[in-house]
Design a protein around this nucleic acid. Structure first.
Lengths: 146, 146
DNA sequence: GTTATTTAGTTGATATATGCAACTAATCTT
DNA sequence: AAGATTAGTTGCATATATCAACTAAATAAC
């Protein structure tokens, strides 16, 4: 099957859709505080960034409008998963801090995701997964330059 | 870099986001009738399916609720890109037909997508792309079973 | 020190997508 | 003929997204 001729977004989009469908389902079933994928994505980035993050930086990191990120932060704050902390030196800046509760939600989601990932990878070699991730990174970097 | 430990959805999601950002931008710049990605996805599936498709089948194919597909079809119909055709034998069934105008939109989008795809693939071998698509298919099939 | 510019965050408005439940119309099964 | 199933539709609620315009705060220019 000559997939090379298929729209890349359609092919990968369908895989994402199926995978996220299962992820959402399991998050709803197992998690104490189920969140949407976008909300998890925000928490994830707060978790992996080495330094503290303000809203503008989060918007840049996710390639989205700051008002979109702000609405997501509003919900996460309401659920007490993050708090806004004002920078003493520059009162315009508000740092997004993950609460203890938020960290629990992150760990819980990582477990659910890791379990699913293991199931999905079954039958694939480490070398195939390595190439897969490499291609994903390559395409992302290329797209970022456009 | 041990990407294997990162949430699969996050990694691929970021790639999709960057890629779709460029695709949307070019669609808006170049296309006569710019559509959203979801609208293009519906047209794409209508295009690649060998037999004619009713709404229920489209919903199944995309893994979404039929009411969600129906709203998208409503918009595409309003833009005269598709028409609903009632099955004479079973008046519950309405076939989704792509108009000539719709076919033009599909071709236009395929061109934009193919051009982008070539740019994104630059630096990747055919073998690497082959493995990438194989992994995507594998993961989609596995997820479908869950 | 004052004014202009830039930056960070917020809000309102609008558009799109999504799913669930409940409904109608049509067909099939019993 | 009545009950069950299927296809499509509608109302409602929720989430995400972007743009423009705004306020508050900091920086730059004069």
């Amino acid at each position: 099957m000559e997939q090379d001729n298929l729209p890349l977004g359609m092919v990968v989009g369908q895989m994402m859709h199926e995978m996220l469908r299962v992820l959402k389902k399991r998050d709803i079933e197992k998690a104490e505080i189920p969140l949407t994928i976008e909300q998890h994505a925000v928490l994830h980035i707060l978790n992996v960034k080495e330094s503290d993050v303000i809203l503008k930086e989060m918007a840049d990191a996710m390639g989205k409008d700051k008002s979109a990120i702000l609405r997501i932060i509003d919900v996460l704050e309401k659920k007490e998963l993050v708090r806004r902390a004002i920078d003493q030196k520059d009162r315009r800046k508000k740092y997004l801090m993950v609460t203890k509760k938020g960290e629990q939600v992150i760990e819980e989601f990582y477990k659910i995701d890791e379990e699913l990932r293991e199931e999905l990878k079954e039958g694939l070699t480490k070398e195939e997964m390595k190439i897969f991730y490499m291609v994903v990174c390559h395409i992302k970097k290329k797209a970022e330059q456009l």
